[in-house]
Design a protein around this nucleic acid. Structure first.
Lengths: 212, 212
DNA sequence: GGTTTTCCGTACAGTACTGTACGGAACATG
DNA sequence: CATGTTCCGTACAGTACTGTACGGAAAACC
């Protein structure tokens, strides 16, 4: 875990035996008893992330029967909870590293596959579902990228707050196919009174308080 | 430029006087005559990127009068041309670095501002336009992230190819507001026969050759 | 209670880098 | 031609890291 946090902050070079030992209050001599060398720590951390990244998806969202609602919950969940800030951008930055590449490939494949299944159930053709999944996953990755900027300039990509809430709705409405039923919040019920386009326009009309 | 390429490959630590001198066929002694120290090279490279990143946007797309077409061309342009592969993901990975943060903030601000202007002209409220701009820019960043994975597993995010062409169309149709006129290619003319939703369905119906 | 295993710390090469000092070549300029 | 400027190379500390050797404490085991 300490290695993953270091990775999120300073990239792969930040995973150093020296720094981790310092941070954990131990010495390098102790370190080299638990791990063969630095690469062993890196691969162990990556495997830990891979397990977490794939299990959390299927565990939390696999049960929801309605594909539209599942997709919505998935996006909300993925964008809202972000246990180690900046981890995914750091990983994609080292995508070509021999230790990172296979892990990142598998996780990406699994996630896009899950998304593709959702769009497929919503009526898209195989190729169309795949394309929408790629677009949706790209939006997710970029969302985390923007969050990694850290400043107060982009309140919409934060994990909480008024602007973040509205932006998350915008993201979901953009990524869900038009006409998909999607209640705004769990207890609010399903406002399937019109198409997604009508919903979109209604939203734009009632919102005049924004920045320039 | 060599520093930017090194940054794209191995992150900020890859910008080393030693490595750059080797690559350029010079020695470090020569290097330290041109630059005060390593930080000077980093900041110079970042400023070079900032100039390029902001100028290329306003120069190439600012002329187009139709906001919908301008937005479409912008997305196509931004996703298609990618002079230094992996640069943007590498930069966002070091978003908290004191030298990177201000540059990245300014570039992001400028780009999102440009996008906001496009959506504004298309009829969105200020807040709505801003939200859509954030979503669109996130999709762009994530697109580059996926491309950085590099493998053959994601042909849709490549700079060329059949799958890439179809995926790019999907991206544009997702990010453009429904009902926006958008010809597929420059000489093809404007097929404004129906709404964007109708276009979307027609596309899904005629495409049955994809993967599972 | 003695012995082995487990775990931690110090000490020592070895590597790769930064920054500076300095010497020298190529060239321009008076 | 003499001199100064520009530019490049080598040499030398100094730093931060990796990996290994080895010594020792603490606990487990018989």
């Amino acid at each position: 875990m300490a290695a993953l946090h270091a990775l999120a902050r300073g990239g792969l070079p930040a995973i150093s035996v020296e720094a981790l030992a310092r941070e954990l209050g131990a010495t390098r001599g102790s370190f080299y008893w638990h791990f063969a060398n630095r690469d062993a720590v890196v691969t162990a951390a990556l495997q830990l992330w891979q397990r977490e990244a794939t299990e959390s998806v299927i565990a939390g969202l696999g049960a929801e029967p309605d594909p539209g609602l599942r997709l919505r919950r998935l996006i909300e969940f993925a964008v809202t909870v972000d246990p180690i800030a900046g981890l995914e951008p750091a990983l994609t930055a080292h995508a070509r590293h021999p230790a990172v590449a296979p892990v990142l490939r598998d996780v990406t494949e699994a996630r896009i596959g899950f998304l593709t299944g959702c769009y497929r159930e919503l009526g898209s053709s195989p190729a169309e579902a795949r394309r929408r999944a790629v677009v949706a996953y790209a939006a997710y990755l970029g969302w985390l990228d923007l969050r990694a900027l850290g400043g107060d300039d982009l309140p919409e990509v934060a994990t909480q707050g008024q602007d973040a809430h509205a932006a998350l709705d915008e993201l979901v409405e953009t990524l869900l196919p038009p006409g998909t039923n999607h209640p705004t919040r769990p207890g609010e019920g399903d406002r399937s009174d019109g198409s997604g386009v009508a919903d979109r326009d209604r939203k734009a009309r009632t919102d005049r308080t924004g920045r320039s």
